[in-house]
Amino acid sequence: MEPLFTGALLGAAGSALVKAFDGPFKSIEDLWYTNFGYKTALKRAEYEAKVESFKQDLLKELSKIPKENQQEPRLCVAGPAMEAAKYFVEEDSLRQMFAKLVASTSDSSKFIKAHPAFVNIISQLAPFEANILQNTNILLAPSPCCKIRFQKKETDSKAFSFTNMSEGHSIIDHFITFDNLQIAPDELELYSSLLDNITRLNLCEIPANYTLTNDTLYDKYLNIPLLNSFLEQYKAELTSSEKITGNDVFFLKETVIPTSFGKMFFEACIRQN
């Protein structure tokens, strides 16, 4: 249960319970705290510690603003950001983004980039996605990615290699990895959905038929053991009707490109000063 709600529960119901435990039932009050109350107290203490971390994050970001650039924050951004942040203080990456956004509204050199929509965008990011945005250059420059399909084999094409699209269906619409981050076994699906969400939020786009000129940048996708194991298992689990003769797993080159909106988000919510 959320601390905000448990706090209210203890404030209203808790006071009633204390009164109910007066008199001969006083010892039950101690039993209640031992079995239930201390858990709420611990949860509240943990939450308050995270709120303090948010305060320190915010003070740290504000301290980086040159004196000549300091200004009153834009309330249309800072207000909703502070309101939303209370639900995300337990997630370090998201908490830090909110702190940077509020600080950006207080910096005359940045406030124009602190778009009101950024509050909702941060709120719609998973901690995993926020961590990717903070620790890669995906919002700074074009990055190689790929589509993975089970489709008809073209002449001279080899399974588990790059080719053009042909008749079949997608296994993974868009997939991306990063040289500085290793995929954990339980993160494969998260990497598969990452691009779906950040393109939905208009932070990036994946233009059709656009690939990077350096083909070697795509080679890494053919040598990911965790991904290959997943694809082999996918093939093994196909029904007999799906195992069409001549169809196999193939990769299609794609490129994810940051939008102007995404670059502005990076400046206001991520860039390290």
Rank of each mutant, 00 (worst) to 15 (best):
A208H: 11
R44N: 12
F150H: 15
Q71V: 15
F5T: 14
K55H: 13
M264N: 01
A114L: 00
T255E: 08
F265K: 01
K253L: 10
I171N: 05
A13Y: 14
E167P: 05
F36Q: 11
P24V: 11
S260C: 12
A208I: 13
M82G: 12
L133S: 08
Q182A: 15
V102K: 01
I224W: 03
V119T: 09
N164K: 15
R74L: 11
K43P: 01
L31A: 09
E83H: 04
S93Y: 03
L194N: 06
D57C: 02
M82H: 05
F98D: 05
Q233S: 12
L212K: 04
S193Y: 10
P24G: 06
F261M: 03
K113S: 08
L201V: 13
S192T: 03
S241T: 13
A78G: 04
E232Y: 08
K235C: 15
D57G: 00
P207F: 01
I138V: 14
V256F: 14
G11T: 03
S123D: 07
I121T: 09
E2F: 07
G262Q: 04
F21K: 09
Y87C: 05
C269D: 00
K153I: 06
K26F: 06
S123K: 13
L42T: 10
D30C: 07
N180F: 02
G262H: 07
